[in-house]
Computed example of a mutant assay.
Amino acid sequence: MHKKEVEHAQRHPKVIIICDDPADLSGVVDIVASQVSAFRTLTSHKEVAEVLTESPPDVIVIARSTVAKSVEIYSLLAKHGLLNYAHENILLCENKESGVAFRCCMKGIFTDYFVYKPMYENYRFRMILHNALVRTEGTSEVTKIREEHFGRIDDKLKQLIDDAALYHQKADETLQTVRRNLDNEKGINKVQDDLLNELKQKHLSPLLDELEHQLADSVHELTKRLKDKQFSIAELTALLSEKDNSKCAQLAQNVLPVGETGEVNISEPKALETKQEEIKIMVVEDNEIYREMIAKILRDEGHKVECETSGLGAIKTLRKHKFTMVFMDLFMPELDGYNTTKNIRNIPHCKKLPIIALTSNKNKDIIRKWASLGLTGYITKPSTKSSILKAVEKALTESQ
Rank of each mutant, 00 (worst) to 15 (best):
K170P: 02
K320W: 03
K342V: 06
I145T: 10
L236I: 10
L330A: 08
D228T: 11
A101C: 02
I266R: 07
K243S: 13
D163T: 14
K316R: 15
A78N: 15
V283L: 05
V392A: 02
G302Y: 02
L77C: 14
Q400R: 14
E268Q: 03
E263K: 10
N363A: 09
W370G: 08
G302D: 07
L396Q: 01
S232M: 05
N265L: 07
S98P: 05
K369A: 14
F39C: 13
K69Q: 15
Q400A: 08
L353W: 07
K4P: 01
H87R: 09
L236C: 13
K144M: 09
S70N: 04
R64F: 07
L76R: 14
G311F: 10
A165S: 13
M282A: 13
K96I: 13
S34Y: 04
K117M: 12
P57L: 10
E398M: 07
L195A: 15
P57K: 13
P382R: 05
P57D: 12
L129S: 00
I16P: 05
N287L: 09
L92K: 00
A271P: 03
A164F: 05
Y120V: 12
P333V: 11
R126G: 01
K369H: 13
F331D: 11
L298S: 08
R180G: 02
R368P: 04
